[in-house]
Every structure is written in structure tokens, then in C-alpha cells.
């Protein structure tokens, strides 16, 4: 179990983390979701004992990140945001190297990495630097798992990875979870939040909300409408004239409109008619987790 209590960290004038507190249960996939610069990487670097927080404390399975960092290093695996294996070593040599650093051999935990490693096996003598992006990520994951960590940290593992590989990567994470490994994953993609057991939304170094995706969706306040737009830009221009406590934002092909008070719904209907849309174009929808995050972040 991870306990993070009131952690703050500043770099010169930038406050990277402000009073972050949360807990992660054993065996769950916990997602830290937030835009670039939210402080996700700093949080992970603190938890994997690469940097010390200015304030606050954290513990992983009872080990304090400050005092027991040596013990923590034995029980965690870390997949950094940027590829940081040795590009001039082959896949096998990288894996063997990291297994040995943890005092293990590849064979000891082979069944854990086998599903991933089997895909890499045909390229095991290829240099890691010459693998494709998705393959690099899989190799890095193998290296982070080869000592069977109790907690696995993944810093933006799917950033820059194609959609098919992303889906595949998440199914691998579910498999890892089945092995009883706690997974902490950060991502800037809000749609990936639904794949986690619980998520924490981060912005500007603050944790805005923690909960399961279902709970977060249930806590959406007000009503949400979608307006199909043939051309988004002119529509946005027209919406600038809308009064009342109504928020709107483009969402793919549609304009999402969040109405805080039911009393304002009539106002919206009138406005839509006024700008020349039929009422059929406007539909009330159930909010997705992205809508919830936008609500939390923007207003």
C-alpha cells in the first residue's frame, strides 16, 4: 500500500507539487491523469526515490521513502517517461543486465515477463536503440518487471505510442495487475482514465480529485448537452453571446455544453433556436470522464 501525505516540491520558483495526499491500495491500477507540466513526473521521481520532497512524507508497503529508500528500491519497478535503456546493448543484454542488478536472473521470474518477452524474443539480439517505439516500451517494461516488483511505476508509458499499441499496453497492465502487482501509471490522455481502478486528477501540482472513474462520472454536477456542429469555429463565435452559467467546449465533432442549473436549460434551448439550429441537433448526454475532468479543471 502506498501512502502519500502532504508532499510538496519546488524547483527554484516553480512549485511542482503542492500538498499532494493520496493512498493507493494493494493490487490496484491507480492512474495519475493530468496535462503536461501537472507535476506527474516529479511525483513519480519522489516515489521511486530519485529526488526528495521538500515537505511531506510517503511510504510504500510500510517503507518510508526517505529512511528506507534502499528497501523501497528492492520492491519497486520504474518505467521512466523517456526511453532509458542502453541503446547500444541488445534486448537480451539489457534484460540480463537489469536482472543481475537486482540480484536476480531472467529465469527466476520468467513466467511474469514471458507474455511480453515472447513478442520481443525474435529481436532479442537486436540493439535496443533500433527497436520500434512500441517494442522499446515493451522491453523497458520487461526490464522494470524482471525482478518481480511489488509496485510498478509507469510514467506516461503510452505517450507517443500509436492507438493500437496503446490498447495492447493497457491489456498488458491488466495482466500485471492479476499477478498482484500494484500499478501506478501516469498519463496525459483522459480517455485512459477509465481503464484504471482509481484515478487522481492533477493540475499545476495539485491533486484535484481522486476516485474510481464511475464515481467521478457520477459526481458530475449539472446537465450536459452535445450539439452536432458542421463547422466548429463559427459556432464557437456565436456561443460567445450566450449568457447564464453555461460552459461549452469543442469535443471531437461536437460542442459539449454543460449547464450548471436546470433553470438555465430553457435559456440554452432558446439560444440554439436563435442561432438557427433545430432542437434535434441538441441532445442531452451522460458525461464521460473527460467531461468531468474538464469541469474540474476549467471551472
Amino acid at each position: 500500500m502506498l501512502k502519500i501525505a502532504r508532499i510538496s516540491k519546488s524547483f527554484k520558483k516553480v512549485e511542482a507539487l503542492k500538498d499532494v495526499t493520496f493512498e493507493v491500495e494493494n493490487g490496484e491500477i491507480f492512474g495519475v491523469v493530468g496535462p503536461d507540466g501537472a507535476g506527474k513526473t516529479t511525483l513519480f521521481n519522489i516515489l521511486v526515490t530519485l529526488i526528495n520532497p521538500d515537505k511531506g512524507s510517503a511510504s510504500i508497503n510500510g517503507f518510508n521513502i526517505d529512511k528506507d529508500y534502499k528497501k523501497i528500491r528492492e520492491v519497486i519497478g520504474y518505467l521512466p517517461g523517456q526511453f532509458s535503456l542502453y541503446p547500444d546493448l541488445s534486448c537480451y543484454e539489457n534484460l540480463d543486465f537489469f536482472a543481475t542488478l537486482y540480484g536476480n536472473s531472467i529465469e527466476e521470474n520468467y513466467e511474469l515477463i514471458q507474455p511480453i518477452w515472447s513478442q520481443l524474443e525474435p529481436f532479442k539480439d537486436r540493439r535496443a536503440g533500433r527497436l520500434s517505439g512500441g517494442m522499446k516500451q515493451k522491453l523497458a517494461l520487461c526490464c522494470a518487471l524482471v525482478h518481480r516488483p511489488q509496485v510498478l511505476f509507469l510514467d506516461e508509458p503510452t505517450t507517443g505510442v500509436d492507438p493500437v499499441s496503446r490498447r495492447e499496453f493497457w491489456s498488458i497492465l491488466k495482466e500485471i495487475k492479476k499477478e498482484g502487482i500494484t500499478v501506478l501509471v501516469s498519463t496525459p490522455y483522459m480517455d485512459e482514465a477509465t481503464l484504471c481502478d482509481r484515478v487522481g486528477l492533477m493540475q499545476n501540482g495539485e491533486l484535484l480529485k481522486i476516485g474510481s472513474p464511475e464515481n467521478i462520472v457520477a459526481e458530475f454536477s449539472g446537465l450536459l448537452f452535445a450539439l452536432r456542429a458542421s463547422e466548429m469555429y463559427p459556432l464557437l463565435e456565436k456561443f460567445k453571446n450566450l449568457s447564464g452559467n453555461i460552459h461549452y467546449y469543442p469535443f471531437g465533432q461536437q460542442l459539449h455544453i454543460a449547464v450548471s442549473h436546470e433553470a438555465d436549460v430553457g435559456l440554452l434551448y432558446d439560444f440554439v433556436k436563435e442561432i438557427g439550429y433545430g432542437l434535434l441537433d441538441l441532445q442531452q448526454i451522460t458525461p464521460s470522464i473527460e467531461d468531468c475532468f474538464i469541469q474540474l479543471m476549467a471551472y
Binding site: 530519485l50 528500491r73 521512466p80 532509458s84 537489469f98 542488478l101 537486482y102
Partner: peptide
């Protein structure tokens, strides 16, 4: 970084 987080 990868080296630093190992128990080495």
C-alpha cells in the same frame, strides 16, 4: 536514473 533506482 534506471541505475539509481536499483538496489545497487
Amino acid at each position: 536514473e534506471q541505475l539509481n533506482i536499483t538496489p545497487m
